[in-house]
Write a protein that binds this DNA or RNA. Structure first.
Length: 821
RNA sequence: GCCGAAGUGGCGGAAUUGGUAGACGCGCUGGACUCAAAAUCCAGUGGGGCUCACACCUCGUGCCGGUUCGAGUCCGGCCUUCGGUACCA
């Protein structure tokens, strides 16, 4: 009889629900394990294979930890705000709230069928006022500490659709993904969170967390710390100063020109009359370029001089000031001191515009008079640098910096690539920003007691050229909290990464009304012990969450420094090498497989496919294999129905009392426990399941074993099965006669260490490193005991006869290698 | 370009600190069962050579070279694929 998953799976779901097996008692925190999955984004489609691949194995790990005696908390929720729901609304007219809630209901049902032990009391969704109220509260706390501020920033603007576009809506050729119009940059006053204040701590904190090295490296690069100097250049004939950042103060004597970013505020002021029209023309030409084109490294560098000159503080040389698009207003000071001899970009630019190239660092092994054919960027001896001549350039960095500081020309400076976090979105479906703009008082925060600022349902979310909320009169008109005059609310909403930067606190008490979260609970349960989610969040979400966590700590609400102690990324499942997405139309629906094979078989297959962190290309080719495994398992237990009533469960057997057959099986089951435990603990589900398959292959002769050993083996097999195929394992244990769900009363077995040790072992015999024979010897045999067995073996002697033995290498229990000549 | 990961049978993938390459599964081949098929069970399955057969030999982990008694694993140089990033001064 085939395993009737269609009956057993709903049956066990019901039992777990009735017995409250998935509820975590948060008042108990001994051996607590907070197991978090990145929550689901209900963007319109139902859950697909990628979600199963993420959540199924991750849940198996959590279940394994539960069986090992941990008090596991595994919540699930919905990252419900965001652009896709709004775009869907623009297209279909269905309100984002309605479509999102409908999606959530559908996805909740799907997730339930997977058989994950999500705590039903901990579910949250970000689009309800009870949740986003606290986004607003957080905003106000950041505002109070000067960590939320407004400034002008460019947005991608589609002149045809009259709307702001997210970066991902701009196609690689710089056009709008909807209508194909060329996207332009438009400046808007927008809100920022000052993540840069935490740059140093965010960098240093990476050393304290157990994350994939790859992810930590990405964050390090993203933060992009560089140490150097800020140098002041006087502008010839004016009081203005140009400040530049450089990591190479040792090359200061080689500066032959200065470059400003075209948008730099000093440009208009410094440009001399004869250069005005050229400069304006150049700035205009830059404007029509998209960000993507402008920052392309393949593009040839462009620029124009502005007619003004700067004075190099160290040698008082007069050098021209240029503007060029390779200077970025967003990095450093927006000004570059150009050293063509020792910087590749400056070299290229100087060659093109015939600017002087001066050598100030001598490459070892070359002569001062050799002409530079490319920029020399490595370490060397300083030349043409006045009092610093002859110094090693590494030492020169410090010496020149000290000189600058002594003479007030500059100072040591640490610079970060990290920029502040722009959180304003000119969108409807998000958290309203709790600020009121008053003609008299300026920007005024909403009083905390007036939170939440509720998102109205009635709104025109079709593009009109301004934020959708601006058109809702009831929403936008408000009284100034300070002076009471008529005023207007901020029409923008927050980036949804704000929602996800603290949600793990809220799971502990989604309904908590008095505060953002219950501090007493958080003190016991935060940080998250294990976080599982996609690697695509390495630099955005995972950095924002660390920032907000540190801010929450600084508010005194948590005592931990980092939110996620351990992190694992599941791999991506592709379809014919391409990412699955609705727009490509290549999404594989998991329902067809679960309907045919059941949730357990499908989960097992996803885990068995390969390493969890690697993902891979989707193929259902091998699913028959895990299906067969499930059938064979069920058949096996079916044969021993009621065994528990006929036999007793023993903890241990003495090897000497077992028959050869029994000994083999006893050893195998204990070896499997050891192997399975190690593998699943490290998220190596594929090899963990392989070990279970080996075990079932070893049960061929189980009929000839004693009833007690049969029960011993089957009980342990079912327990190992429980994390990876939970419904099946429960059913198998029930067949044996077990009456209590394993997830209601967790069980795990440690291996009998005596059974792990084999009596004998096969040793590989090599001649000159080539395998020639194997010999079976008692375990831990010494070389002298093994040697006589080898030199009588014809397979070995025929390769050494007539030759001189130079050396013999013996590795206990492994290898005997004879080196001959 | 730079940074990172990976490359192993027909396929997905195993392989502790360098120590018997190919675990486990898919597929395929042959056999049993069946009127027949499906399902199931049993056996075989990296390439080549030799052999009636057993056995044995030989090559083999992207390519070239090196270290070592011994390399999928370590080192140097390439090639390919996939991620990340984009003039960061």
């Amino acid at each position: 009889m085939r395993y009737p998953f269609a009956e057993t799976e709903p049956k066990w779901l019901k039992i777990w629900e009735d017995k409250k097996a998935d509820l975590t008692d948060l008042s108990k925190h001994e051996r607590k394990l907070y197991h978090l999955n990145m929550f689901i984004y209900p963007s319109g489609a139902k859950a697909h294979i990628g979600h199963w691949y993420h959540y199924g194995p991750s849940d198996s790990w959590a279940r394994y930890k539960k069986l090992k005696g941990y008090n596991v908390f595994e919540p699930m929720g919905y990252d419900a705000f965001g652009l896709p729901a709004e775009n869907y609304a623009i297209k279909t007219g269905i309100h984002p709230k309605d479509s999102t809630l409908a999606n959530i209901n559908a996805i909740r049902e799907q997730l339930k069928k997977m058989g994950c032990m999500y705590d039903p009391n901990a579910e949250l969704m970000t689009c309800v006022p009870e949740y986003y109220k606290w986004n607003q509260w957080l905003f106000l706390q950041l505002y109070k500490k000067w960590l939320a501020y407004r400034k002008n920033a460019p947005v991608n603007w589609c002149p045809n659709d009259q709307t702001v576009l997210a970066n991902e809506q701009v196609q690689s050729d710089g056009t709008c993904e909807r209508c194909g119009t060329v996207v332009i940059q438009k400046n808007l006053t927008q809100w920022f969170f000052k993540i840069t204040d935490y740059a140093e701590e965010l960098l240093a904190g990476l050393d304290k967390i157990n994350w994939p090295e790859k992810t930590k490296l990405m964050q390090r690069n993203w933060i992009g710390k560089s140490v150097g100097a800020e140098v002041m250049f006087n502008v010839d004939g004016t009081d203005d100063k140009i400040s530049v950042f450089t990591t190479r103060p040792d090359t200061l004597f080689g500066v032959t020109y200065v470059v400003l970013a075209p948008e730099h505020p000093l440009v208009d002021k410094l440009t001399t009359s004869g250069y005005k029209s050229e400069v304006e023309k150049y700035k205009e030409s830059i404007k029509s370029l998209t960000e993507i084109e402008r920052t392309s490294t393949v593009k040839e560098k462009t620029g124009v001089p502005i007619g003004a000159f700067a004075i190099n503080p160290v040698n008082k040389e007069k050098i021209p000031i240029w503007i060029a698009d390779y200077a970025l207003l967003t990095y450093g000071t927006g000004c570059v001191m150009a050293v063509p001899g020792h910087d590749e970009r400056d070299f290229e630019f100087a060659k093109k515009f015939n600017l002087p190239i001066r050598k100030v660092i001598l490459q070892p092994g070359t002569s001062e008079n050799d002409e530079l054919t490319e920029a020399y960027t490595a370490v060397g001896i300083m030349i043409n640098s006045g009092e610093f001549n002859g110094l090693n350039s590494d030492d020169g960095i410090e010496r020149v910096t000290a000189y600058l500081e002594r003479n007030n020309f500059g100072r040591k400076k640490v610079n970060y690539r990290l920029r502040d976090w722009l959180i304003s979105r000119q969108r409807y479906w998000g958290t309203p920003i709790p600020i009121i703009h008053c003609e008299h008082c300026g920007e005024v925060p909403v009083n905390e007691k007036d939170l939440p600022v509720e998102l109205p349902y009635e709104v025109e979310f079709k593009p009109t050229g301004e934020s959708p909320l601006a058109s809702n009169e009831n929403f936008i008109n408000a009284k100034c909290p300070k002076c009471g005059a008529d005023a207007r609310r901020d029409p923008d909403t927050m980036d949804t990464f704000v929602d996800s930067s603290w949600y793990y606190f809220r799971y502990l008490n989604p309904g908590f009304a008095e505060a953002i979260f219950d501090k007493a609970k958080a003190d016991k349960w935060i940080p998250v012990d294990m976080y599982v989610g996609g690697a695509e969040h390495a630099t955005m979400h995972l950095l924002y969450a660390r920032f907000i966590h540190k801010f929450i700590r600084d508010l005194g609400l948590t005592n931990s420094d980092e939110p996620f102690t351990n992190l694992v990324h599941q791999g991506t499942i592709t379809n014919n090498g391409a990412k699955m997405s609705k727009s490509r139309g290549n999404v594989v629906n998991p329902d067809e497989f679960t309907e045919k094979y059941g949730a357990d078989v499908f989960r097992l297959y996803l885990m068995f496919m390969g390493p969890y962190e690697l993902g891979g290309d989707w193929s259902d080719k091998g699913i028959a294999g895990t299906d067969r495994f499930v059938q064979r398992t069920y058949d096996l237990f079916k044969r021993f129905e009621g065994l528990k009533k006929r036999s007793s469960l023993k903890n241990k057997f003495a090897l000497s009392n077992l028959s050869e057959n029994e000994k083999l099986l006893y050893r195998k089951v204990n070896q499997t426990i050891k192997k399975f435990d190690e593998e699943i603990n490290h998220f190596r589900f594929n090899t963990a399941i392989a070990s279970l398959m080996e075990l079932i292959n070893e049960t061929k002769n189980i009929q000839s074993c004693s009833a007690e050993l049969q029960l011993y083996v089957l009980e342990r097999f079912a327990v190992m099965l429980a994390p990876v195929a939970p419904h099946l394992a429960e059913e198998c244990r029930a067949l044996l006669g077990e009456e209590i769900s394993i997830f209601e009363k967790p069980v795990w077995y440690d291996p009998d260490t005596e059974a792990l040790i084999e009596d004998s072992v096969n040793i590989a015999v090599q001649v000159n490193g080539k395998l020639r024979a194997t010999v079976s010897v008692p375990i831990n045999s010494e070389q002298d005991d093994v040697k006589p067995l080898i030199f009588i073996d014809e397979k070995v002697t025929k390769f050494i006869d007539g030759k001189t033995i130079i050396k013999e290498i013996f590795v206990k229990n492994k290898i005997y290698n004879i080196v001959v000549k």
